[in-house]
Write a protein that binds this DNA or RNA. Structure first.
Lengths: 235, 235
DNA sequence: CCGGATCCGAATCGATACTG
DNA sequence: CAGTATCGATTCGGATCCGG
């Protein structure tokens, strides 16, 4: 543990000692969405070796970032401590920064429910939403289906079981105002380099149900402006 | 390079792929203070292996975070690109977060000019400074001597040659209003858990010259409130 | 001195297998 | 479900060396 120290008495240094190891920040990202069990984390981090997940969780506990909570009848979950939750603005700022360097997905890249949830939180423009009527969006990207409730009060996101067969007796949450099937090109819509209408024309977004006109409102509500000139990828 | 990918199409993931490797964030911290040459970076990161510094600089260049700038007659410097400078709020937020977990310095921990400069920037309370008269502080910690000019407009920090023998013909910057010699306990003053007066009594701060009453103003100007209950160190 | 490159042992990580 | 154990592949740390 001392071997990993950078040998400086400095707040930033301490921070990266606590959450700078490989995978740690991504674990925090998923836990910012909600408490998760070991298996959930594994599913949300498909490429993490299980031993690494295990040691990271121990280290994060020792750092006071994560807490292990036994559940009443079934298993246990990991959740962020108050100190860990203070990382939220840092995680969203980093997401915004990294968003600009995303390029196109590499072969095999996945999008997970938790990463997309945090991405939407990151892109959420509270002031724009406050000046717009409420709306409920259902967003499908690959195997992930999210339901985003936007009101003047803010944003609430739920992860839905993906293929969503009508499921006769399921709890009806109320129909979304629009259901969108999207590909990775949705990044350009959020970046503002592609209008919603053009995205539909290009097949990047497909309106499965509801009012396609709401897509413009979606783009205004979830937006990360690019501040950097795009640059060659995979150099 | 692909081996280091996390396999997710996500902004946060991309960010940690770009600046999540060991030492990378500390290099950015030092470059946020100003352009630095290879040797400066080595001196500011005493424990970094030179090969790691070398490959990190190359990676950061390829990531569009750092630029290599040949100097007119003498050597070259590394500096942040516009994209790299966007990391400043992230670095200060992380510093603030890590500040709370700093504890007491480990044996052999150092404080560098650049790390202390960024720490002061992190702790700087612009609104408090705006409502206070201007002041010039000279702060000495170990081998590091900083001069912090606080005005209603903001903060400017210069790193001074440490032992400061009177240096007959040196440019006179104007005398600081107070010269303070401090130890690591200054962290408690910035955290607000120790008043400036108590710090002087405890020997944490020593006023070498100037007006000791300014120390209270210093503590109001540079402050990082603790939001977390202190916790056992080095568990 | 500056700006690295090279070499090698130590530590960490990734992949897979296995267990209470 | 919630991890440990093992082992080869990478990366890191420490030291040395080298060309301007």
């Amino acid at each position: 543990m001392a071997a990993r120290s950078y040998g400086q008495y400095c707040g930033l240094t301490r921070a990266v000692e606590l959450i700078g190891e490989r995978w740690a920040m991504l674990i925090v990202r998923d836990l910012l969405v909600g408490p998760r069990r070991y298996t959930d984390l594994r599913a949300g981090l498909p490429r993490i070796p299980t031993n690494i997940l295990s040691v990271r969780l121990k280290e994060l506990q020792q750092a006071g970032v994560v807490r292990r909570v036994p559940l009443a009848h079934c298993g246990l979950v990991y959740e962020l401590t108050a100190y860990g939750r203070e990382l939220e603005p840092i995680v969203t700022a980093l997401s915004r920064w990294g968003f600009q360097a995303m390029g196109t997905p590499a072969e095999g890249d996945v999008v997970t429910g938790d990463s997309l949830t945090m991405a939407l939180r990151t892109a959420f423009q509270a002031d724009a939403a406050a000046s717009l009527p409420p709306a409920v969006y259902e967003l499908r990207i690959g195997p992930v289906t999210l339901r985003a409730d936007v009101t003047a009060d803010g944003l609430r996101i739920a992860q839905l079981a993906p293929p969503a067969p009508p499921a006769a007796g399921a709890v009806a949450l109320g129909d979304p105002d629009v259901v969108v099937d999207a590909g990775p090109g949705i990044r350009d819509v959020i970046a503002g380099t592609l209008t919603a209408a053009d995205a539909v024309d290009a097949g990047v977004l497909r309106v499965v149900a509801g009012d396609a006109a709401l897509l413009e409102r979606f783009a205004a509500t979830f937006h990360i402006p690019l501040t950097r000139t795009p640059q060659k990828e995979t150099a």
